[in-house]
């Protein structure tokens, strides 16, 4: 499935993601890692720890509606794979981010930004994994 190359929107979106990451470090001193925030929300260590995670998740989920207000439509979600593949993929993502202790936001943005060697290795590893899987699914299996 072809998608339109959107350098301006993607850069601007990226700038906002960066801004949010910096603001969270400035306000609470936490990295903006989606995996960590969600894990701590599902298994909270204390009620104050749970509260800020609930607030930030609620904020994240409001984002698409601000987008709707600004542009008149919700963000485009096109899924070129089957539901079974989605379920399997989701499960593997859950396992991987737990063992790898982070995902695109935690390692890829926050960790890379402070030049954490651990995050650089993690980011290179998951980017490699993704590239391999996309190649296998699209060019070897032929999805």
């Amino acid at each position: 499935m072809e998608t339109e190359f959107t350098p301006l929107a993607s850069t601007f979106g990226g700038l906002l993601i960066g801004l949010a990451s910096v603001m969270l470090m400035w306000a609470r001193g936490n990295v903006f890692g989606a995996t960590g925030i969600l894990t701590g929300f599902l298994q909270p260590s204390s009620s104050t720890d749970w509260a800020w995670r609930a607030a930030i998740l609620l904020g994240m989920m409001t984002g698409p509606f601000v987008y709707l207000f600004l542009t008149g439509s919700l963000p485009t979600i096109e899924v070129p794979i089957s539901r079974t593949t989605m379920i399997i993929g989701g499960f593997i993502v859950g396992i991987g981010v737990t063992y790898g202790a982070g995902c695109t936001s935690g390692h890829g943005v926050c960790g890379m930004a402070r030049l954490s060697p651990r995050s650089i290795v993690a980011t290179l590893s998951f980017m490699a994994g993704t590239a391999v899987m996309v190649f296998v699914m699209r060019h070897l299996v032929g999805g």
């Binding site: 998740l57 593949t85 989701g90 993502v93 981010v97 063992y99 290795v121 590893s125 994994g129 391999v132």
Partner: peptide, 27 residues
């Protein structure tokens, strides 16, 4: 760290969603 991240990548390559991108649009 390496195998976990690699695994995450394999899943991301299947699903196309990563946690930070999927969470906001759950709503």
């Amino acid at each position: 760290l390496v195998l976990g991240s690699l695994t995450f990548g394999l899943g991301w390559g299947l699903a196309g969603f990563c946690p930070g991108a999927a969470l906001p649009v759950v709503s």
